[in-house]
């Protein structure tokens, strides 16, 4: 099954869980799957208009997805979807 990899900063809603198996379909469907299991997760990735938040980057099997197409990207098999957000002090 496809898997969504959750970065540490986004593990509040998932209560520490870092990997969630999903049904797949496309990236948005996969993220919605995670949100059904762990409510509050999707709002960290997608805004109210359904667009990826500007500070979030999405990867499929290690390749960064284009922002405009990311949510509609097909997901299946053993695909890994990774969510990343910059964290640093400075």
């Amino acid at each position: 099954m496809p898997t969504v990899l959750i970065p540490p900063p986004y593990r509040g809603p998932t209560q520490g869980t870092g990997e969630v198996e999903v049904e797949g379909g496309d990236v948005l469907g996969s993220l919605e799957d995670v949100d059904r299991k762990f409510p509050g997760f999707l709002a960290q990735v997608v805004n109210e208009d359904g667009a990826v938040l500007p500070f979030v980057k999405l990867f499929k099997n290690g390749d960064q997805l284009d922002v405009a197409e990311a949510l509609r990207t097909p997901v299946g098999g053993d695909d890994e979807i990774e969510v990343l957000a910059a964290i640093a002090g400075g």
């Binding site: 500070f55 980057k57 960064q64 910059a86 964290i87 640093a88 400075g90």
Partner: peptide, 17 residues
């Protein structure tokens, strides 16, 4: 991903969230 190439200031919205 070079997460810091736009500077640490880009962390603000994540931290706020």
């Amino acid at each position: 991903p070079q997460m810091f190439k736009t500077g640490t200031s880009s962390v603000v919205p994540v931290a706020n969230m």
